[in-house]
Amino acid sequence: MDNNKQLSVFQKTTVGVQFLFVAFGATVLVPLLVGLDPSTALCTAGIGTLIFHLVTKGKVPIFLGSSFAFVAPIIKATELYGLAGTLSGLVAVGLVYFLMSGLIAWRGAGFIRTIFPPVVIGPVIILIGISLCGTGVNMAKENWVLALSSLITAILVTLLGKGLLKLIPIFCGIIVGFVVAYFFYGIDFTPVAEAPWFALPKFVTPAFSWEAVLFMIPVAIAPVIEHIGNIYAVNDVTGKDFVKDPGLHKTLLGDGLACMVAGTLGGPPVTTYSEVIGAMSLTKVTDPAVIRIAAVTGIVFSVIGKVSVLLKTIPNAVLGGIMLLLFGMIASVGINNLIHARTNLGEPRNMIIVSLTLTFGIGGAVLQLGSFSMTGIGLAAILGVVLNLVLPKERKEEVE
């Protein structure tokens, strides 16, 4: 099905760099949006990918990059608990993966779908997208010319792009917006010129915070389900069954460890990248060694000091234009999740779960217990899970 055996070491390296190029835009966009160092994110994505391959015995061709699911929670948690406290919450995200890994090893993958059906996951994904729309608009309105330049480019690449180009609309949008900013508004490259060629990423040490831990843990529900879906997608691309070998519990364990390491070093949580899976489908190259080359290349880029400084010169309006499309697309994925599963919203039980999950999340409901508080996506996710478990099902639904 693939041409892995026909590739030389040089060809595998070339394809590996291409795969990193596909993941690059999204991986560095997350830290730029939440105030983390993009070089740290590149480094932790590379290290996390290597950890994942170590745990899965090098069998699964998966690249782990920065997770957009945590953008809004990181911004809010940083306001409440500071960056160091927030990072402790991101480290704890790995515990959710460990728990799911243990449950799947014990009861099988079907057990997870019972706890997190589409009627719960769909609204949570919708919230992840909707919660960021205001931030995107505020950044875009700083300069609508730059915002629309990046937005229109990303749309055109998504609709008209061919091959690998179609997989990097974010990267293309940022490049065009940056070029427009340079020629028409000017960009100060003095910090780039002054930056050293070699510099370690800015690692930040977490400071333990119970509030931040409990704030972040529920958010991990959506990425866990995304992980499971992407493993099945890789199965389709490679023609192999990684759910059985090395096992879904192993892939979740590897992802969880990668998230913990990322948080410990000051990077955002990582998640399986469907963009790279799409690139494998196009190139027919599914050798896990190629993904590991992409990971190592990401680590090398992370220690080039000028890269991080250059990325920080990208105007906010350019990033805002990308966000207008990106976070709307995330919300659309949640809607598609409900449609694909044929969730009947005319059914009172489903309507109640979806309605309350969205209302609590969008409305900013807060659960306050002493000094501890929970709000936003985390609270909405827990509410959806609880409602799904306690609300009675109709007989017809139980039969199905």
Score class of each variant (00 low, 15 high):
Val354Lys: 04
Ile47Arg: 05
Phe178Gly: 08
Val91Phe: 10
Thr153Gly: 09
Leu391Met: 14
Ile125Trp: 00
His227Glu: 06
Tyr97Gly: 09
Met216Asn: 00
Leu324Cys: 13
Pro218Gln: 03
Thr375Cys: 12
Ala380Arg: 04
Ser274Glu: 08
Gln6Asn: 10
Val213Asn: 11
Leu379Glu: 10
Ile121Glu: 11
Val224Asp: 10
Ile115Val: 14
Val318Ser: 05
Ala380Phe: 06
Gly239Asp: 09
Gly364Asp: 06
Lys5Ser: 00
Leu95Val: 15
Ile121Arg: 12
Tyr81Val: 09
Val234Cys: 12
Ile126Leu: 14
Leu64Gln: 02
Ala109Met: 00
Met260Val: 08
Ile362Ser: 04
Phe52Cys: 11
Lys396Arg: 15
Pro348Ser: 07
Phe10His: 05
Leu54Ile: 15
Glu397Tyr: 12
Val219Ile: 11
Gly163Arg: 09
Val120His: 14
Leu148Ser: 04
Lys12Phe: 10
Leu148Tyr: 07
Val270Thr: 13
Ile362Tyr: 01
Trp197Leu: 05
Asn337Trp: 00
Phe171Lys: 03
Val34Ala: 14
Gly278Trp: 09
Ser67Pro: 11
Cys133Pro: 06
Leu83Gln: 00
Cys43Gln: 05
Val309His: 09
Gly89Cys: 10
Leu42Ile: 14
Ser67Lys: 14
Thr313Cys: 07
Ile330Asn: 05
Leu42Lys: 08
Lys57Val: 14
Ala23Asn: 09
Ala23Cys: 10
Thr158Ala: 08
Leu324Asp: 09
Gly263Phe: 15
His227Met: 06
Ala147His: 02
Phe116Glu: 07
Gln6Met: 07
Glu394Asp: 01
Ile293Tyr: 12
Gly267Cys: 09
Pro223Leu: 12
Ala154Leu: 02
Gln11His: 11
Pro73Asp: 01
Leu160Thr: 12
Gly321Asp: 15
Ile362His: 02
Gly229Ile: 04
Val204Tyr: 04
Thr27Pro: 06
Gly163Val: 04
Leu80Thr: 10
Ala294Arg: 02
Ala220Thr: 15
Leu164Cys: 07
Ser67Cys: 13
Ile155Glu: 01
Val179Leu: 15
Leu200Cys: 01
Trp210Arg: 03
Gly136Tyr: 15
Ala181Lys: 01
Asn350Pro: 03
Asn388Tyr: 11
Cys259Phe: 12
Leu90Arg: 07
Gly370Cys: 06
Val176Pro: 03
Ala220Glu: 14
Phe70Lys: 13
Ser8Leu: 08
Ala212Ile: 09
Asn3Ala: 05
Ile152Met: 14
Leu214Ala: 04
Pro246Tyr: 13
Phe208Thr: 10
Ile352Pro: 09
Val243Phe: 14
Ser88Phe: 12
Gln11Tyr: 06
